[in-house]
Design a protein around this nucleic acid. Structure first.
Length: 278
DNA sequence: AACACCATCAACCGCCGCCGT
DNA sequence: TACGGCGGCGGTTGATGGTGT
């Protein structure tokens, strides 16, 4: 948490939260109550003007962040389960630091939470195992062409090409050919969907999203691309002694089929806000 | 008990894309 | 087409609590 009275940026700069009279730092239970009540009555959106209308001495960004990351009923708090961790690893392997995109596929978890968990746990874990957390490849290994990094299996040629592009997308965010603006969300990252639109530029947004979902599922399930989107989710387990020949498609993890009876992620709703000013 | 160091994570910052004008 | 406002993103900070000495 930041010092409410200080700013790391130059004093001349004025950010939304540094405006005179606006409160910064940890939220109090009272502020949370005001924000939740207001949004329950009026809905989300109009963040810039929301604080004034709700009677909060906060900037809109701060309100939005508090709501999105903590107060939303759908936000799942608490320990990240093993299967969620596994999913994060898989998605990060495919998407890179696209936290919002990763969070979008893990019910109840926010991009901030996943980002924190990655930096605090998973990144170190991979490093300890001798795996480069950026590439998910063994550290100090000879460079491999990106598409081969992702899927050296010839039978997965489409997969290789597509994931290769995603790989580039994760590393080269300035390449306009590898990015498309997803509907509704702005910002770098956001809801961009990598190079999927290269599959068929005529697809509607929803269709593109469907294709993307199928694509991700097929990759994560180790199936031929686009042949199935309804397979049981698979789990990944890091190998104790990483070897170039042990890797599942060169991706760094052993693939283990998840039991068909295993329960899907079920967000624990209304577990109550936490993280109030300590 | 006191201190130092480390880990965690809520919150902030700066930037960028989308969209309306 | 250009511009400005807004929403949203990833990166980073720093307060707090836990653990080790």
């Amino acid at each position: 948490m930041r010092n409410p009275s200080s700013s790391s940026s130059s004093a001349a700069k004025t950010t939304c939260c540094s405006k005179v009279g606006l409160k910064r730092g940890p939220w109090t239970p009272e502020e949370d109550t005001v924000l939740v009540d207001y949004i329950n009555r009026n809905g989300e959106g109009m963040w810039r003007t929301l604080p004034k209308r709700a009677g909060l001495l906060r900037c809109g960004k701060s309100c939005r962040l508090r709501w999105m990351n903590y107060l939303r009923p759908s936000v799942k708090h608490g320990h990240i389960e093993a299967d969620e961790e596994d999913l994060i690893l898989r998605l990060h392997r495919l998407l890179g630091n696209r936290w919002s995109l990763i969070a979008g596929r893990i019910p109840g978890r926010t991009d901030n939470e996943i980002k924190n968990y990655w930096n605090a746990h998973l990144r170190k874990k991979l490093i300890r195992q001798g795996i480069d957390p950026k590439t998910h490849r063994p550290i100090n290994k000879n460079p491999v062409p990106p598409f081969q990094q992702w899927c050296p299996d010839e039978k997965h040629s489409n997969c290789a090409a597509l994931v290769g592009n995603l790989s580039y997308a994760a590393e080269d965010r300035d390449n306009p050919h590898l990015y498309v603006g997803g509907g509704g969300g702005g910002g770098h990252g956001g809801s961009e969907i990598g190079s999927i639109n290269q599959i068929d530029a005529t697809l509607a947004d929803e269709e593109v999203e469907d294709v993307f979902s199928s694509f991700l599922n097929s990759l994560m399930n180790d199936d031929s691309p686009f042949t199935s989107s309804n397979q049981p989710m698979t789990l990944l387990q890091p190998l104790p002694q990483p070897s170039p020949f042990d890797f599942d498609h060169g991706l760094g993890y052993q693939t283990v089929k998840k039991a068909a009876t295993s329960t899907p992620f079920t967000p624990k709703m209304n577990s109550g806000p936490q993280g109030i000013a300590r």
